[in-house]
Structures are given as C-alpha cells and as structure tokens.
C-alpha cells in the first residue's frame, strides 16, 4: 500500500458512516447544507481518508482544556455495511461462494484498514480464513479449467465475477505465470 497506489486511493474513497461528537460551524457542506453548521450527533457518510483522520484527532487540541479525562475525537466511526455481522457470518459459512465484489470491490484493503483502526482480532481471523479458502479456488482457476466444477454443471465463470480487486491481481499474475510455463513446455 504505497502513496501512489491507485487501488489504495480508490479504496480510501469508500464512504463510511460517521457520527459527529461536536457542533462545528461551517462544516454543513459535509451533510449537503452548504453554509450551515453541523450539529452534534449528526450522522454523515464520509470517505475513509477523511473519517480516519477525524476519528483520531480530538476536539480538545487546545492545551488549556487538558483537564478533561479523555479527549473526544471529532467523529465516531460506525461499522459500515461491508463489515456488518451478516457479512461476517456469510464469510464464515462459505468464503468460496461469497460474492465479494458485490459487497465492495476493495473488500480486503478496507477490511485491513478497519482492523488496523480498531485492532480487531476477530476480523483478522475471519479475513485470514477467507483469503486462504478463496486463494485455493483462485489457483484452481488460474492453473486450469476446474474439471470438478464443470462436471457438477457449475459455470466456472461465475466465480471470476465475484473476485475483488486484490484477488483479480493475484489471479492475473498467477494465470500469466502458469500460461507462460505451459507455453514454454509445449513450444519446443
């Protein structure tokens, strides 16, 4: 994840629901009311690149008010739809049949960012399991046509439509590699 990584930039643009902890003058444009104030407890969808910073930086940057126990951050992040319990349960029940793309096309990148923000151990375990299971399927598709699935009458194309952006890169690279090796073996 580098600064110039296009996929990282696109992932960061995903909207995350947030709740404001302060009344802030002039910020109404985040809600769509240009020129108005933003109210405490207002629910706004912010892109992750903005929400991530605002959820860390507090309103009490002023050193005179250090007396308060905890500096409340500007906003509070609310668990987004793509990491809702029903999605997590769907992953646990069968990662290979899950349509990740319809949940979010940068699912892994976002989930990792979320796990970093909240130190979410359970999410990490679920992601680990999901990546391993799905990568087996990706490898099957990358190395050859999956005869087992064809025999069962399942269309191998449907799995390819469920890949998220990261998985597509993996698929493309490993498919390219298998293809080149096969070509080299055959050409002589």
């Amino acid at each position: 994840m580098s600064y110039y990584d296009i996929d990282d930039i696109l992932a960061d643009a995903t909207k995350i629901p947030c709740r404001f902890n302060y009344n802030i003058p002039g910020l109404g444009y985040l809600e769509g009311n240009i020129g108005h104030d933003i109210k405490k407890n207002a629910k706004v969808e912010l892109p992750l690149w903005l929400g991530r910073v605002l959820a860390i930086v507090g309103g009490d940057a002023d050193p005179s008010s250090v007396g308060e126990d905890e500096a409340l951050s500007f906003i509070e992040l609310i668990t987004p739809e793509l990491l809702a319990p029903r999605v997590i349960n769907a992953i646990k029940s069968g990662p290979a049949t899950l349509d990740v793309r319809s949940i979010n096309s940068h699912f892994y990148a976002l989930a990792v960012k979320w796990a970093t923000l909240f130190n979410d151990r359970e999410l990490v375990e679920v992601l680990n399991y999901m990546l391993l299971e799905r990568s087996q399927e990706i490898r099957n598709h990358a190395s050859s046509i999956d005869l087992e699935n064809l025999a069962q009458g399942r269309d191998p194309g449907t799995f390819m439509l469920t890949l998220d952006e990261f998985e597509k890169v993996i698929y493309r690279n490993s498919h390219e590699s298998c293809k080149e090796t096969k070509q080299w073996m055959v050409q002589k």
Partner: peptide, 20 residues
C-alpha cells in the same frame, strides 16, 4: 510458476496479520 501466487497471497496474509 508458483511465485506470483504464493508471494501475493502470503504478502496479503502478512498485511492482515500485521494490522493488529
């Protein structure tokens, strides 16, 4: 032949692991 696949998946697993 394996390298792109294994490296890609293992790097991501490491990313996921390091997020804690």
């Amino acid at each position: 032949e394996l390298r792109p696949f294994v490296l890609g998946v293992m790097n991501k697993l490491k990313d996921i692991h390091n997020s804690i």
